[in-house]
Computed example of a mutant assay.
Amino acid sequence: MGKLGGSADAIGVPTVGVEEEFTLLDPYSGAVVPAAVEIIRECGYPTRVVAESMRFMVETRTPVCSNLAEVHDALSTMRRRVAEVASRHGTVAVATGVAPFGLPDPPLVTDEPRYNELAQRFPTAMRANGTCGCHVHVGVPARQVAVEALLRLRPWLPPLIALTANSPIWEGEVSGWASQRFILASRWPTLMPAPPAGSVEEYDQMVDQAVASGQALDTRSVYFLARLSPRYPTIEVRAADMSLTAEETVAYAGLVRALVSMAVDDAAAGRPVVPVRQELLRRSCRSAARAGLRGLVADPQTGRPVRSWELIDDMVTRVQPHLRAHGDEALVLSAINRLRAVGGGADRQRFLFLRAGSPAAFVAALATMTTGEPYGEYSLPRHPSGLWPGQAQRFSGS
């Protein structure tokens, strides 16, 4: 495919690209279905709908986008296309961070040399590797700028994790974690905030050392939560679970773009980096994965417990001028306020799971949320605060 992200456009607004990962489930039992190869081939978008590490996962990629309307169009089109083709193969594509009824053992690894090598080198991590995230690429003008921006993104990783947590159901039960995906993915040695690096040379040395020491197979498998993309001229933020709805992904992409823009501007202006201890930041990320939007998170700077929304509101306040400059302010703030009213992905999944009464009903509910269109006879539930996000809603764009 072409470059994801890229550099800033003519008016100084960075381009953005988004990767989404879907799980293929049996519509009756909820078990994973290894039909990705056939579905990807039939989708007919070889650079936009691609394989992932497991045969029950499908990844979609937007083109390089200049505004959030383009992101929304691409995400919605791909979600509907994957869902349509999956249904013809007797399976359902759902937007959730983990397969809710568990994974097979041995794992259903995609038969490609790199994935087979990963399975051989990291068997424990690969047994739980059928997790689905959302990766946002934001164009940056130079790698040194990107390294300095990464330093300034570190404190915002926990609120991003809390905001997007969407995997509370694991092995057929409410797990106690808002993001079970984060816990499973943490079996990879490099799934962590990137340690502080002040230069491109220092960052590259850190990545090379991870490979040389056996913590990663190659530079692509250094899975920092935010990193310099090993393939594109972008910062790639990998902290989020897959979002239930395309609209939530669009808003998240806008928020991440604004955070990167703020970090780049702060670096260019020589504003000091707020120091954050690595161990405290890792603890904060883990607490955010447990709490989601409905609990306490360890503040990444002080370690004291604070409400998730306290960290999120601080992040949004700081980034609001950049949202406004990009034309994204109304869209992103509306989406965040809606999450405040109806709950995050994890909250809604718990509600749907407890309400469903059977794996089939829960899978149908997830399928409906994924595309915003009724699956079978399932209809989206009403909520006292209004419609659930994704129900017949379309953004006007930026």
Score class of each variant (00 low, 15 high):
Ala263Met: 09
Ile312Leu: 15
Asp314Gly: 10
Ser287Cys: 13
Asp266Ile: 09
Pro305Lys: 11
Phe353Met: 03
Gly270Tyr: 10
Cys285His: 05
Tyr252Gly: 03
Pro275Phe: 04
Gly357Ser: 11
Pro359Val: 13
Ala361Cys: 00
Ala258Arg: 07
Glu377Cys: 05
Arg355Cys: 02
Arg271Met: 13
Arg355Val: 01
Ile312Lys: 08
Gly345Ala: 08
Val316Gln: 01
Ala346Leu: 03
Met262Ala: 14
Leu323Asn: 05
Val297Thr: 04
Ala269Thr: 07
Phe362Ser: 04
Ala267Cys: 10
Met369Lys: 04
Ile312Met: 06
Arg283Phe: 06
Thr371Asn: 01
Thr302Pro: 07
Pro275Gln: 07
Arg271His: 12
Ala330Tyr: 02
Val319Gly: 09
Ala263His: 06
Ser287Trp: 10
Asp299Asn: 15
Gly343Thr: 07
Ala356Gly: 02
Val363Pro: 00
Ala330Pro: 03
Ala346Trp: 02
Glu329Val: 15
Val319His: 08
Gln320Leu: 15
Arg257Val: 12
Ala291Asn: 06
Gly344Asp: 10
Ala267Phe: 10
Arg271Lys: 15
Asp266Trp: 10
Arg338Trp: 12
Gly295Tyr: 07
Glu279Ser: 14
Val297Arg: 07
Asn337Tyr: 06
Pro305Asp: 06
Leu380His: 05
Thr370Ile: 02
Gly295Arg: 08
Ala364Ile: 01
Val274Phe: 01
Leu281Val: 15
